[in-house]
């Protein structure tokens, strides 16, 4: 079970309050986790990744274990701590604005 932390806007959209947990079929990767997340919460389709290219939206970042995984390959394995459920996979909106 992978723990996922969503930003406030996406929590509201998905009607959840705390962390969400998703189960992935294969080896946990960004793609597998996001596929499982979107399957469980279809209202999130297109909000994290472009619906057609599958690319991360420009102002969305992925953190875990104090690492910025945003530019890692979506098919790279996630850190062991995330796979073991010790650490969450964090989706957040990048700081922007003024």
């Amino acid at each position: 079970m992978i723990r996922v932390v969503l930003p406030a806007h996406l929590k509201n959209l998905a009607h959840v309050t705390g962390e969400v947990r998703v189960e992935v079929a294969g080896p946990p990767t960004q793609r597998e986790v996001l596929d499982a997340l979107e399957a469980a919460y279809p209202m999130l389709l297109g909000t994290i990744r472009d619906r057609h290219s599958g690319k991360r939206r420009p102002f969305v970042r992925f953190y875990a274990c104090e690492l910025d995984l945003s530019n890692e390959s979506p098919d790279d394995p996630l850190p062991e701590e995330v796979v073991a459920g010790k650490e969450p996979f964090i989706v957040l909106g990048a700081m922007a604005g003024g």
């Binding site: 959209l13 909000t47 102002f59 969305v60």
Partner: peptide, 8 residues
């Protein structure tokens, strides 16, 4: 819509 999370 929004700049971070696109169109809904």
């Amino acid at each position: 819509s929004g700049g971070w999370f696109g169109q809904l």
